[in-house]
Design a protein around this nucleic acid. Structure first.
Lengths: 219, 219, 219, 219
DNA sequence: AATGAATGAGGATTCATTCAT
DNA sequence: TATGAATGAATCCTCATTCAT
């Protein structure tokens, strides 16, 4: 897509400005991904962006401000990626599997995201809470739809909330556990299987299916 | 239990020394619990313990050293608490419920533990890994026993591992989500219920129980 | 010599930067000269330079770094001064006298140099060794030339080395001994005389000139 | 030599006390010899003496106090050693050679002395000055005697002083230069030779002996 | 007299932020 | 708008010295 240019073909002031801002943002994401928020100094960020320290403050009011922006922007990308990947699915379980996998494929593409996400809880708590609300809301709608369609058990909204937390937590932790020292996630296929198995059947051995779900037996 | 005293009834040097060390440890736990590792300065810790800054270094070689000790000590307490609470349980599900509840009752008793646990991943990674290994190993033995007893589905050890991660993650996240701004955990009963429901039956609506577990229907 | 200026007549950033660095260097030299390396704190140095503490670290990576720079820079000045003063001399003894005197006149001009030089042995050992090597090498060439010209006794190179150490030591110690509490060197003329006398004739009374140099008597 | 004991054969309180003091002194000497004054902390000294930190202050009022005592005590030992070694000598030159060599043999026996001596200039200046005065005074008497005996040139007392400084400096520097990284002095024989040669004849080549000592030539 | 814990002043260093150019 | 030097608050840590036991 062609960019707007001035008559002489040079970039607009606005464009140039946006580029610098993006460069800072990208640099910050990488630096936080590599060193963590604590060691993401302005010096490091501006150096990576090939800019002077002072320039930073032309675009962000403070160090915290850019930290607070990291997760919202990247989180939106993550959601978009997941939606796109899980779009074609029909059944609840299919969709769940696809979006589960999509989360991990996103991490492969953007390895620094996981650290940003994780540490944000500590260093950008507001942003983290917001991100989390976004995820939860989206998930809630999905589960409500599945419930309405009779695809999943008839849980109250009050139960749906902790359930979502559990599923989201699961993804995050698995990612963390299966990330090697180089920051590359390598999820074993068993993880996917057992995740789906838990969702479908729970853990209890068939022979011991509790009485209170006996109802299943008689259609 | 009566403490050893000197003939004059005063405390031993050793005792006094232990008390001071404990005071520092306790102060550090509280300060980290309240402000997080980043803002747990030596000044804050020693002030809370009513000691001079220099005294700190009579007991710990560095700030990091006490940080590294926090989780192991408190984590052991947590495990002890859970074991004690879940001791009486018979079935897998019972035990799981009791230890699940025990985790949260421990947090009620020791509110600063959660933050210490969470941030340790970043600020005391070695300690965190070790703590995690402890938890995982303990959990693994438990699940293997249940599997041997036919109480849970016949999952491979390779599947047990991610499963454990999921369950552990679940507890941690729920705690985080249901902790209010004062650091008090308030887990809704629905969370317990849905957790156990997930373990027992999974999520899928009875009418849609996948074919591969049809076996359940015919005793 | 006119300094480069910007169009507006103000100093360049680079110039300003050099000035600040020089100010720090000069301040450090003075402070070390007055208080010694041990008590040459960053606080003292920056205060003397009328700069904030932090500014120091924009120019030097550490306290040790500036310490290591002191002697090389000032030592080079010393050598230059001596060379310039002793330039015109013809004979060995003349040159020796001039450079001997030049060493002390340099100390008059730069009173803090002596302490910097002396303590450097302890606090900037690398720099001190290097300085010493420079001096020694320069001296060695000088003596070799004099030897080749038959101006001094025909000593082996292995003898020249300790000899140089002796001469260098002599200057340093004399300076130390004849420095008063205000740091001002006041070398008595006798010191010069006896130094030259030692070089020319040694100490032994004429009547007792050892046999092995009897050769002198008969041309 | 039998030590005074109490009736029961135990050591006197005074004796015990002296032993502890000596242990501290010896420890301090070693520590300063190894690490230098700067890093000779009370902790290090008392640890080496197998005593508690506090014990130090029962014997010395301050860290500086023991520093100030080091050189006087060891310096006296050095002088005693030199006197003993040079005792038998007859001529000036013989005595000079023996005491020159004795200085270095003392360093072989007490390797930490050199560092103590050198750094004392900075860290125990008073003691250093005193030590220096002792040396100088002793040397002066020696030279005056030699002068009276007509063994050395007829120098004024005002000339003897700087001369002594030169000779003392020479020894110190040579020791420094020929000490290896393990603190062992290894003086090459050339150093002795050239030292004595300088004393006997000076440096000037025989053919160029200055006119003002021509007197030598004609008996 | 011996002990060793407690003290707190002091020092090097880091780094977010400001600001003149 | 970009720059990068200047700032100074904040922090960890060391260590001589004190003092109660």
């Amino acid at each position: 897509m062609a960019m707007a240019r001035t008559a002489t073909g040079k970039k607009t002031r606005v464009q140039r400005s946006e580029e610098v801002r993006d460069a800072l943002f990208q640099a910050a994401a990488e630096v936080v991904g590599e060193y963590g928020y604590v060691d993401a100094s302005i010096t490091r960020i501006t150096q990576r962006a090939n800019l002077a320290q002072g320039t930073f403050y032309n675009y962000f009011a403070s160090r915290q401000e850019i930290f607070d922006e990291l997760l919202p922007v990247l989180g939106a990308k993550m959601l978009a990626h997941i939606r796109q990947q899980a779009g074609g699915a029909r059944t609840f379980l299919e969709k769940e599997e696809l979006s589960f996998r999509a989360f991990f494929s996103f991490l492969k593409r953007m390895p620094y995201f996981l650290r940003i996400l994780n540490e944000a809880e500590i260093f950008a708590p507001k942003a983290h809470r917001q991100h989390f609300r976004n995820i939860t809301a989206s998930y809630l709608r999905f589960l409500q739809k599945a419930r309405a369609a009779g695809e999943i058990a008839d849980l109250s909204d009050d139960s749906l909330e902790p359930l979502i937390y559990m599923l989201v937590a699961t993804r995050g932790y698995l990612a963390l556990r299966y990330t090697n020292e180089n920051g590359v996630v390598n999820l074993p296929e068993e993880a996917v299987t057992v995740y789906l198995q838990l969702l479908s059947n729970g853990l209890i051995a068939p022979s011991l299916v509790p009485i209170n779900i006996e109802g299943r037996k008689e259609p």
